[in-house]
Design a protein around this nucleic acid. Structure first.
Length: 441
RNA sequence: GCGGUUAUGGUGAAGUGGUUAACACAUCUGGCUGUGAACCAGACAUUCGUCAGUUCGAUUCUGAUUAACCGCCCCA
């Protein structure tokens, strides 16, 4: 009887793992370009953190959390998103007092939601994200959006679909909420069960409903935009105007309300459809928040955050062939010929590794056919062949696996020869440096 | 939580109510124990997701179950 992988989880290995690493590397680099610093918070948090931050009325808290009691009967939860943990960390470590504001943090790591898996959706998935806390300027919101936009562009995306909306401040939202309740109160009896529930908990979410009949009803509902206070409106316009100035295409989506309760003012989602038509939902999303920190016992500081789903990025990038470069590379494959050569070959491999070469070695007596097969599979550039004769003469055979040329050289010259060969290659490589790609366009 | 589709070696997959379950790739052995492809000969599913039922007989039919994929809801 096999032990199965847990539903909705997945193993990532070899080329896929390299692709994930590449994606994360690009995202981290962009975050650092914007002066964010890494933060790593626990995967496990007390359940209360999420009920208070993500919100009791959100679907995440109501039905998607991995929650259980630990041996001390404390309710703990595998984080369904990473923002809450970052906020908790800011409060726990009093970062708002010990650090200059704003606090700018980025994170990468797994999150968990108990949902039905489907395309681009897992129960354990990885998120990259940023949080900027302690600035009220709308330009901080913009910085976040632009960071996300830059990251997607650097990963190779074209035609990014940015959707935005404003939820306004508390005052705007209260007025709007009343208006919505009044509008829907006449028709709520004809609407779906979910909507009836939303009507009481959070009428804004009715706008999100995908039932066609309900969408019809919602179409004529009052618009948030008309209920923004003058200040909230001005804030939103600053953002839209600036996006236009920087020629970042966006679309105002009145039905965009987001499923997390803590947002206010601007909220946004990045969507993308591949050339084959694959769409895995939002690849990234975020928004501004005012009460999140105070809700969990911190000072009343505003912030803005953005999260990107690594699995979703990977899925669409793979579909659009944006990942083909990531192959395993091996500098040298050490081939012992005969059982008695393994000991010496092992020593050679260790010396090369100590000098930072990527080295694989065959530790069994295998035929040339097998040795070269393996060399091909691990994408080795060079082979070092060590047999009885070589050991006797203190030599090794160094073979270029691409040109098939080989030379016999004294063992003591091996490292020097390799250093020369690889120096040449690095110089060649510098001519097409990655820095150019980034500033290109 | 609801709906659809699927389940055959390491992988991709044909196929049938009756004991040879195709083919291809990968792997291994030998031709060729000191040099990569190709070629040739051979090996590789006591078994068709799991459990039950129908049947003389089930991988095939039926039911249940599990899982995966896809969609709804929601979300990254």
């Amino acid at each position: 009887m096999n032990v199965n992988i847990v539903k909705g989880t997945h193993d990532i290995y070899d080329d896929d793992a390299r692709a994930f690493e590449y994606i994360e590397m690009v995202l981290k680099a962009v975050a650092e370009m914007y002066s964010f610093q890494q933060i790593r918070t626990p995967i496990l948090e007390y359940t209360e953190l999420f009920t208070r931050s993500v919100g009791e009325s959100s679907d995440i808290v109501r039905k998607e959390m991995y929650t259980f009691l630990d041996k001390g009967d404390r309710s703990v939860t595998l984080r369904p998103e990473l923002t809450a943990g970052v906020m908790r960390s800011i409060v726990t470590n009093k970062l708002y007092a010990t650090k200059d504001l704003p606090i700018k943090s980025y994170y990468v790591g797994p999150a968990f939601r108990y949902e039905r898996p489907q395309a681009g959706r897992y129960r354990q998935f990885n998120q990259f994200g940023i949080e900027a806390v302690g600035v009220t300027s709308p330009y901080q919101d913009l910085e976040c959006i632009m960071l996300g936009y830059d990251a997607l562009k650097l990963l190779g995306f074209k035609n990014i679909n940015l959707k935005i909306n404003s939820l306004g401040d508390q005052e705007s939202r209260n007025k709007y909420r009343e208006a919505l309740k009044e509008y829907f109160s006449k028709q709520i009896d004809n609407m779906c069960a979910d909507c009836k529930e939303r009507f009481n908990i959070n009428p804004l979410r009715i706008l999100d409903c995908k039932v066609p009949a309900d969408q019809e009803i919602a179409k004529n509902a009052p618009k948030m935009r008309d209920y923004l206070t003058p200040e909230a409106k001005k804030r939103f316009e600053t953002i839209t105007n600036t996006l236009e100035e920087y020629e970042i295409p966006y679309e105002i989506d009145d039905s965009l309300v987001r499923g997390l309760d803590y947002y206010s003012h601007i909220i946004f989602e990045f969507h993308y459809t591949t050339e084959n038509g694959l769409n895995v939902g939002a690849v990234g999303a975020g928004g501004h928040y005012d009460n999140l920190l105070s809700e969990i016992g911190g000072p009343a500081l505003s912030g803005v955050g953005l999260a990107l789903g690594i699995e979703r990025l990977y899925a669409v990038m793979k579909d659009d062939n944006l990942l083909k470069e990531e192959k395993l590379e091996t500098d040298v494959y050490v081939m012992p010929i005969g059982e008695d050569s393994i000991k010496d070959a092992f020593g050679v491999a260790q010396i090369l590794r100590a000098n930072a070469y990527k080295v694989e070695i065959c530790l069994e007596n295998k035929s040339f056919k097998q040795l070269f097969k393996r060399a091909e599979n691990i994408n080795a550039k060079l082979a070092v062949i060590i047999g009885e004769n070589e050991i006797k003469n203190n030599e090794v055979v160094l073979k270029d696996l691409h040109t098939q040329k080989q030379v016999t050289i004294p063992l003591k010259n091996l490292l020097g020869t390799l250093d020369m060969m690889f120096d040449d290659k690095e110089e060649e490589h510098d001519h097409c440096s990655c820095a150019e790609d980034i500033h290109h366009e």
